[in-house]
Design a binder for these strands. Structure first.
Lengths: 211, 211
DNA sequence: TTGCATTTCAAACAACCGTTTGAAGAATTG
DNA sequence: CAATTCTTCAAACGGTTGTTTGAAATGCAA
């Protein structure tokens, strides 16, 4: 943990990325003006071009920051599970960890929003996010799922099942507004997140034990 | 089926809505310029203001079109199921129908993309889409799910389970690019959609039969 | 301190934005 | 047919966009 003191330059860079993440995720890439971003970062418009070359440069800097944040939160692969019950436990703990990150305030809530935006726009950052985060995580879960079910690790059935699992989780984030409305929840607090995780866990349980 | 012939006005209106759906869903509301929309609809920029009052007017017209398309595709509620097995069958048939619409080319693919955009932007159309389509569909599925499981119709567990179910489906649409990449699919053809539906059906089966 | 590189800033740039305008075209009515 | 309404269009409007500029401000070594 080298804690180099932040230079003035580093601070504005970080502020611009934070502001970019927030406004990109809220209004989309085109909808977030450079002036609004600079204003939120409490600096001048020209800083964006100075530090990142262009608005597009800030976009990829944001993507890299998101990839960094997420891979940090998801963590590295645990030890290879030796049996189905261990694999099942590993799936559940991974899910809980990721859910806390995706749904809760463990990270800038803008990180996930930004990523989903990039996904929708098929933006230039999607390659980066896919290669650095989605593919490895998905692949790791496939291994666990295969061990837990006895199916082939890279079979279509396993890969699709893992996508379905991740899909449930992300949907609760994407459609947060709708879920809150329908559930009568004012926000995703710890209690609400626990209920969501409980729902997903229940699904995993029955998928892994049932036929 | 009254088949009134389309007037010139109706044709440009329809063309503008189709172009709006496409470009809004691809580049977001702010990212789609009125000139680009008019160009795609092969008409003049001023037509937007003439027919819809403003760009924002076109946005809500698009939302209404999406609501119309979807409620048409999802259809009305079937007869009240008399037992768990009937309810289970009704859930599966509803899922298959909705999946064909969401994933396949049964509707302008831009319709779902537009809706997800509005969701992300918390745009003004979200109320309309929620009230006209999401809430009723969700509520109907909750009834079926409750009958199939014996749980209370409006219990938190049922409502969350239904969201999880819908989430899987929508995620396969949202993350289509990623899924295709990971699966090595060139596109969502009938075969691929069948496999996805199969995955979701499997999940329902085990969720409803298992504990 | 002086000198130099780094970082910030207000101002200006062309290009594009959504919208308005008034005239021209097309369709409908009597 | 002429009269009238509806629809389209090129052009122009003020405002905002992303980016550039050159001068201040700041940080840091000598």
């Amino acid at each position: 943990m080298t804690q180099t003191p932040l230079s003035s330059s580093d601070k504005t860079r970080a502020a611009l990325i934070a502001a970019g993440l927030h406004l990109f995720s809220q209004h989309g890439y085109a909808g977030a003006s450079t002036r609004a971003i600079a204003g939120r970062a409490e600096t001048n418009v020209a800083s964006i071009a100075y530090h990142f070359g262009s608005k597009e440069g800030l976009r990829t800097a944001c993507a890299e920051e998101v990839a960094r944040l997420i891979s940090e939160a998801v963590g590295k692969a645990g030890p290879q599970p030796v049996g189905p019950s261990q694999a099942r436990a590993a799936i559940k703990s991974t899910l809980t960890r990721v859910a806390g990150f995706v749904l809760g305030g463990m990270a800038p809530p803008d990180a996930i929003g930004f990523m989903l935006r990039e996904l929708a726009e098929e933006g230039p950052s999607v390659d980066l996010v896919y290669a650095r985060m989605i593919e490895p995580t998905h692949r790791r879960l496939c291994v666990l799922w295969a061990v837990a079910t006895g199916l082939a690790e890279e079979s279509e059935q396993v890969r699709l099942a893992v996508f379905a699992l991740m899909g449930q989780l992300f949907y609760f984030r994407i459609a947060e507004g709708i879920v809150r409305r329908r559930m009568g929840w004012r926000a995703y607090g710890p209690g609400e997140i626990a209920k969501i995780i409980d729902t997903l866990t229940r699904g995993i349980e029955s998928a892994l034990s049932g036929g």
